[in-house]
Design a protein around this nucleic acid. Structure first.
Length: 466
DNA sequence: GCATGATCATGC
DNA sequence: GCATGATCATGC
């Protein structure tokens, strides 16, 4: 059965046909009357199916090319420092909470649909109509064995959470490569879950952005094009991955260093590193894990895990609060909470490296811990975010200016909320971002860069001691 | 001593 | 030159 120069029973012919879109846009294949399609978000993929592959768009639980078990996905690229990177996570099938709890991974609806992907990456360009986006990378992706073990563990974590009646508490930070991302308009789309009457946000299985970036690197590599940093794999044993979760394996690799002083670790490893320097965290983590310093840790990069070093006093309280990147005041007031930068920063998985001062005031390696914020605390951060947004929108940032010229602000402080607060985050008080509204007190249209911070008491109580 | 304003240091 | 992780430091 040959339709339009490809054969649905011949995987290679389908991939070859897909590559016909390289350096072209779907607009090249539309009639004048068909070019008046309005919105994007999913429409591009549908047009590729209908107008390029010429099959009927469906919402089947089978793969698009079910004859060969291959699923078609169109996904956006953006331009990064070293070439193309994924613009976002890759969204796969919607999670049917009611059915998935009866599934086993190998025969799951996820595997049935997504085990073998035909990926068509296009360059997303602002101000361009989506039918004119140019396809830049087209290839076939089948999950490598080790990745599939990690994805299996992720899938099981997500499904177990649903089995516990906690579908409404799912978070992307729960897992490593495979996430459960929200799907639907501004998270108002909810559905039933089997073991709790609380309605849960609709979610879909998705590949983390960091994982998609590595797919992109690999597919370019197949063409002899090398982008991105070299990675070094941490866990090689498929057996280990079957038996233990990735976090258990990684934590165990750190354990032999527990209670050693930092200076001992550094001299034992003959590494010249100043532990007050910014790169110390990355260097220390790589030393302890036996990773070469010019390589990235494959599993953590693919999972988008953020490594954070915390120095604790003897009372287990961190010496400092923990900062997030400075926010842009204009973006802050324009964003909805659901798609805000702060919320996505909170939904990532963290690896905390705890260093602690002993009685001799020496810094020693205490422990590491994987952590992601639970739904209740993310909600508390929403209140902080909302208040911050209001202060900026009201032009009400400055509270008063002291005789010495020091300004105090109306931003939420450590006393207002147990989880997070807002404080300056700039190279000097003159290091500013523009304001959307004039500040009432100063009359200025700019203000010192600020960021959200996690309270150190919260780090002690909910991360270190829990 | 703590809360919070201010700034450093490095890497890209 | 700026973004970002991390830390310093002042004043109540």
């Amino acid at each position: 059965m040959i339709i339009n120069h490809y054969n649905r029973f011949d995987k290679e012919s389908i991939i070859q046909h897909a590559r016909g879109l390289l350096n072209r846009s779907i607009g090249d294949f539309l009639d004048e009357s068909e070019r008046n399609v309005l919105t994007g978000k999913g429409r591009l993929g549908q047009l590729v199916e209908a107008k390029y592959f010429k099959y009927k768009v469906n919402s089947s639980t089978n793969a698009d090319f079910h004859e060969v078990g291959m699923e078609l996905k169109c996904s956006p690229l953006k331009v990064g420092k070293n070439g193309f990177v994924s613009k976002e996570r890759l969204v796969l099938n919607i999670i049917n909470y009611l059915d998935v709890v009866d599934e086993k991974f190998d025969k799951s609806s996820f595997m049935k649909k997504n085990a073998d992907l035909l990926l068509m990456f296009y360059l997303h360009e602002k101000d361009k109509h989506f039918i004119d986006y140019i396809f830049k990378l087209i290839g076939n992706w089948v999950f490598p064995d080790n990745d599939l073990q990690i994805i299996r563990k992720d899938w099981e974590f997500i499904v177990d959470k649903i089995r516990l009646g906690k579908a409404h508490e799912l978070s992307e930070g729960d897992t490593f490569y495979l996430g459960a991302c929200t799907k639907g308009t501004s998270a108002k789309t909810v559905r039933k879950q089997p073991f709790n009457s609380v309605l849960a946000k609709q979610r879909a299985f998705s590949l983390k952005q960091g994982y998609v970036n590595q797919i992109i690197v690999k597919l370019f590599e197949e063409q002899g094009i090398y982008i991105g940093k070299p990675l070094q794999r941490l866990v090689d044993s498929k057996q280990d991955l079957k038996r233990y979760s990735l976090d258990e394996i990684i934590v165990s690799k750190f354990e032999k260093y527990y209670n050693k002083t930092i200076s001992d670790i550094i001299s034992e490893n003959r590494i010249d590193v100043n532990y007050l320097s910014k790169s110390f965290t990355a260097v220390l983590t790589k030393i302890l894990l036996g990773i070469e310093l010019d390589k990235e840790i494959e599993e953590l990069t693919k999972a988008g895990v953020k490594v954070k070093t915390i120095r604790l006093g003897q009372d287990n309280v961190p010496k400092e609060h923990l900062s997030f990147p400075a926010f842009n005041f204009i973006d802050l007031v324009n964003d909805d909470w659901e798609d805000s930068a702060f919320k996505s920063q909170l939904e990532t998985k963290f690896l905390f490296v705890f260093l602690k001062y002993n009685e001799k005031e020496e810094l020693y390696f205490e422990k590491v811990k994987f952590w992601n914020m639970n739904a209740a605390d993310i909600n508390k951060c929403r209140i902080v975010w909302k208040k911050t947004q209001k202060v900026v929108l009201d032009g009400n940032i400055v509270h008063e200016v002291s005789a010495s010229g020091r300004r105090s602000t109306n931003f939420p402080s450590t006393k207002d909320n147990s989880v997070a607060h807002v404080r300056p985050h700039a190279t000097s008080s003159k290091d500013t971002y523009p304001l959307p509204v004039q500040d009432r007190h100063t009359g200025q249209y700019e203000y010192t860069k600020h960021s959200f911070w996690l309270n150190k008491e919260f780090i002690k109580n909910k991360i270190y001691e829990l």
